[in-house]
Design a protein around this nucleic acid. Structure first.
Lengths: 209, 209
DNA sequence: GATGATAGGCTATCGACGATAGGTCTTCAA
DNA sequence: TTGAAGACCTATCGTCGATAGCCTATCATC
């Protein structure tokens, strides 16, 4: 049915392509970089890219996964370093927002996709395959979710709702700052601080007695 | 092959194109509808579209503006009908989220753009021209912002930060529910309710004494 | 050595896309 | 009656992602 790729997925060339693509994404925006531009910058022909990646989107997807894996590592280090869970919540939330602002293209690919998701087919639904960007983003977010669970100190069934709502808050600011940079925003630092306060206040009001 | 064409009156054809495009957007997703598909469904040639719209994106932009203008009208009616400002905040927030879920393509175009914004050129920066989708969305959001100002009952300079943060919250949930429909979300109604509670609690903690 | 598998290139080309050029037909006011 | 304007057409452009098919260097095995 689906022959996934024609050549092996290992090699220096593959890494070089990813490096070049990441640079071009940063220079011109991920959406307006073509396979021909990448190939020319690498020094190979455009069809040769398909020996290393199944589709053009696969290049962006892999860069996205790698970026979020870096965030995930940073999160785990933070979770280990900051013992007070309230402080940890602040640190993680801030790092999450700043990551999005530092890697807007990766954040866009993961959470503001152009194409509609296809419904899961049958029982073989695998998030890693279907939406690798989301999967990588969620690995990072898991630290935030766990910290929220720690703060609440128990499980009353409200955990998912609260975690997902705080995620929506943090994502919302990140997403808007990325997609509408020329909106007359209040000072960015004050917006971030306000969002973190909002999360704290809400979480405090939802604490398990 | 060539049947006699009864010419539409000026403007009718344009409306017909918009109607057909809206239907196709709903059926296949805005991102994967081409000018040729629209033209075929209308019954004209593909280049003929350019007699009515400057670019392909202009069709989507106009549909987006119209959709948000409907939301704006609904908001103003609500603002007039619901006198208690706390209840009004709930009603507006809920309507905003539900609007996004009912018109995911329009919401995407307005707030999850594919291509990077161009920096404003010179002094002639006009939001309506540069980003009509955002402009229409903000007209709608203005009601929410005004209600927040009413609740706070004064101006201590914190208004913009608070309004933008609550916007981020509401937008965040809307955006994630649209872009990640297959994520294992908590019950949608509970998520919406939680977001509205979060806004209320935050706003209460930020009230002017 | 010769051989054959394989990785990694290449050129040529495909179909679809948005968009433009330039001509034709119809309408309608002067 | 005529001529400008508008709406439509066909033909075509350049670019896009992707595929087909061939060539070459390497290297383990015979």
């Amino acid at each position: 049915m689906n022959e996934p790729i024609r050549r092996a997925r290992t090699g220096e060339r593959r890494e070089q392509i990813l490096d070049v693509a990441l640079r071009l994404f940063g220079e011109r925006g991920a959406g307006s970089v073509t396979t021909r531009q990448i190939a020319q910058a690498v020094g190979i022909s455009q069809p040769s890219l398909y020996a290393h990646f199944a589709t053009a989107d696969a290049i962006a997807d892999e860069l996205c996964v790698r970026a979020f894996d870096v965030l995930h590592t940073r999160f785990e280090a933070m979770a280990a370093a900051v013992t007070d869970p309230w402080d940890r919540l602040d640190a993680l939330g801030r790092a999450y927002i700043e990551f999005g602002l530092e890697h807007p293209d990766m954040y866009r690919i993961a959470f503001m996709p152009t194409r509609q998701m296809q419904p899961p087919q049958g029982m073989t639904f695998d998030l890693e395959t279907t939406d690798p960007g989301l999967a990588a983003g969620l690995r990072a977010f898991a630290s935030l979710r766990d910290t929220i669970a720690t703060i609440r100190g128990g499980d009353d069934g409200e955990g998912p709702v609260i975690a997902q709502t705080i995620w929506a808050l943090v994502h919302g600011l990140t997403s808007l700052l990325i997609s509408k940079p020329y909106f007359p925003w209040a000072q960015r630092e004050r917006l971030i601080a306000e969002v973190l306060i909002m999360a704290r206040v809400h979480l405090a009001s939802r604490r398990i007695a």
